[in-house]
Design a protein around this nucleic acid. Structure first.
Lengths: 142, 142
DNA sequence: ATAGTTAGTTAGCCTAACTAACTATATTTC
DNA sequence: GAAATATAGTTAGTTAGGCTAACTAACTAT
């Protein structure tokens, strides 16, 4: 457990850094035609396998109606397959379709390329240090 | 300049971490009644002093019409003061009002509290390492 | 004085978030 | 086994925040 003043300072720094990094990365999304909420849901389906609407809503921390719309948009574009649960007819199971996986990979790579460009301006040692620090502090959620 | 594979890995890690941290912090905004775009603009005005609409749009990396609306919303709520530039009648100068500074401080602190709670679960050394790494990698933009 | 540029606004569209209220299906309870 | 309740998802309507296109007002330069 960290000293309070240091915690304070790092929380502030992390907040600013997160805003800066995502704002920078988001510029890559403008090409992609699929918004960040849709990409994020698609990412869960691609790397985490099929999920119900409710599960997706919980993972993405949005309300069910919001996830309904996100999934509808993905479905209209052919990026997910939908089917009824065989054991519970209320439940809709979503699965990433081939085109969805492809678009996700592409959009994700565009974001990572931008962040990489940002990091490549920095010293190797500093980047390695950041890698180590992130590994230490963040467990593998999301 | 970092090795390509390491850059790759850190970019990915930083991306995930930024998403996670902001998603977590954003929960604090639900109380606040002022949206993130408004808060961010208010932050620029509070810590950076008066700016024109155009300057704000540039800093926040949004288009001028978007910033017009953000500033209008802040003005309606009494969080900013507006005045014409004395030297150029096209220009609108925005300045944080007392109520704006207050709401910003409160909302910002709520976000930082949440991030701090996240960090306080980690080891002191790891948090300090992250602080060092962020200091090294990010210069003081934003 | 007119032509061109710059600052900002208006209008209209989109995504993505919310709440409230609904339908359809499952489950529980009497 | 019927009624009551709970759960999964949808629909409807609102709000914030992003965009482009097209506009007005004001300044600048020729």
């Amino acid at each position: 457990m960290a000293r309070s003043s240091e915690l304070h300072r790092v929380a502030d720094r992390l907040h600013s850094a997160a805003i800066y990094v995502l704002r920078y990365a988001r510029e890559a999304d403008r090409q992609s035609s699929v918004g960040p909420a849709q990409l994020s849901a698609l990412s869960v389906l691609t790397y985490g396998g099929p999920h119900t609407i409710g599960e997706l809503a919980a993972v993405e921390q949005v309300t069910p109606p919001t996830m309904t719309r996100i999934v509808q948009a993905l479905h209209e574009r052919g990026f997910v397959r939908l089917k009824r649960s065989p054991t519970d007819a209320r439940v809709t199971i979503c699965e990433a379709a081939r085109a969805g996986v492809a678009i996700l990979r592409k959009a994700r790579q565009a974001r990572l390329d931008r962040i990489e460009a940002l990091l490549s301006q920095k010293k190797l040692d500093d980047v390695a240090l950041l890698g180590k620090a992130l590994d230490a502090v963040l467990d593998d959620r999301h």
